[in-house]
């Protein structure tokens, strides 16, 4: 029982990342009908928002501290982050410690901006072109974004730690009444899962309970009629693209403590999230979320030593195997709608 719960938990954090990226992907696909291969790059850009933010708030100026002496007896020069000057030392330290969660505040506007820019500047011209062209141009864009990040941040992973309070693990099993040591789970992964759940819920609530969301859903169902009603659906879809970019970016921001960001992390996730989207059903938002968590959990179970003893290496291929089986038995994916990408 403990083992099962542990694997479900292990699957949740990876599944959350898959679900968040797949949600953005399918949002773009469902609204604009564009297959966005640059979505992994958006995830990566989000992660580098966190890196940039944590560097920005540590920007320092040098002051001469008369009270301290270095070993030669001269006054010691110390670097003081500007943030100390603004908020005082105690608050500044807390902010530096909590840089990753705080960078969400920066990531949201930045990512929406990037998303809108991308849609207006590039994707807009590709609505009428075949899907293959869309894949190719966004693939090219992904390479370019990746190389730009590599140029500015280097090729090595940049460690971006979680706040001190959330580093380490806790014994989840004890809370559920199992023996101590049975289910030990890192705090940050739980945070990531909760965060993903909140973001997903927010996106769904936004689409379900606001007028804006209602128009967008109507546009997804029948774009032409909505346009005939005099609604500028393109503008709203552009905003949805920005929103999808922000969702991918947030997934990236919060993922930095789990995996130090490097320039090609997006590509690694992209391939898997495409599989997730296809398994969930192109254009189906609940499908993407469901498939994300499902595949994350299946992958975790396949990584159990007991399973690996029987079927070695299964953890490496299980997702693709599931994808192939699903695609062949349920051609539209788990929750796909009729008539989407059927041609």
């Amino acid at each position: 029982m403990e083992a099962i719960i542990l694997q479900v938990l292990n699957g949740l954090d990876k599944g959350s990342a898959y679900a968040l990226i797949a949600l953005g992907l399918t949002l773009i696909f469902g609204t604009l009908g564009v297959v966005n291969f640059a979505h992994g790059a958006l995830f990566m850009l989000g992660a580098f928002c966190a890196v940039t933010f944590s560097r920005l708030i540590q920007v320092s100026h040098t002051v001469i501290d008369e009270t301290q002496k270095d070993f030669l007896g001269n006054p010691l020069k110390v670097d003081v982050p500007y943030i100390y000057d603004f908020f005082g030392q105690a608050a500044g330290d807390v902010m530096i410690d909590w840089a990753v969660p705080l960078s969400i505040l920066m990531a949201i506007p930045v990512m929406i901006g990037i998303g809108v820019l991308m849609e207006r500047g590039l994707i807009k011209h590709f609505y009428k072109r075949p899907h293959a062209d869309q894949i190719l141009v966004t693939f090219g864009l992904a390479i370019v974004l990746q190389e730009i990040i590599k140029y500015f941040y280097g090729a090595n992973p940049i460690p971006t730690p979680a706040p001190d309070a959330l580093v380490g693990s806790f014994d989840f099993g004890v809370m559920l009444g199992f023996d101590p040591g049975g289910i030990v789970y890192p705090y940050w992964r739980l945070v990531y899962f909760l965060f993903a759940a909140i973001v997903i819920a927010a996106v769904f609530a936004f689409l379900q309970f606001t007028t804006f969301g209602m128009v967008v859903r109507a546009g997804m169902a029948d774009r032409e009629t909505v346009t005939l009603l005099g609604i500028d659906i393109d503008k709203r879809f552009t905003i949805m693209f920005g929103l999808a970019a922000a969702v991918a970016g947030l997934a990236g921001v919060m993922y930095t403590p789990i995996n130090s960001p490097n320039y090609h992390m997006g590509m690694d996730f992209l391939v898997l999230s495409f599989v997730v989207v296809v398994v969930g059903g192109m254009g189906s938002l609940p499908g993407a979320v469901l498939a994300g968590f499902l595949l994350g959990i299946i992958e975790a179970f396949a990584s159990m030593p007991e399973v690996l003893n029987v079927l070695p290496g299964i953890n490496q291929i299980i997702i693709y195997l599931v994808a192939i089986v699903v695609l062949l038995t349920r051609p539209r994916g788990l929750m796909g709608r009729k008539g989407v990408m059927e041609d």
């Binding site: 899907h131 894949i135 296809v278 490496q316 291929i317 195997l321 695609l327 990408m341 041609d343």
Partner: peptide, 22 residues
Amino acid sequence: GIYFSILTLAFAMMSFALAYSV
């Protein structure tokens, strides 16, 4: 369409993962 692309991608990644591990 895209499903074909993903299927071939899945097979290639499977081959890669298998060649790397099992």
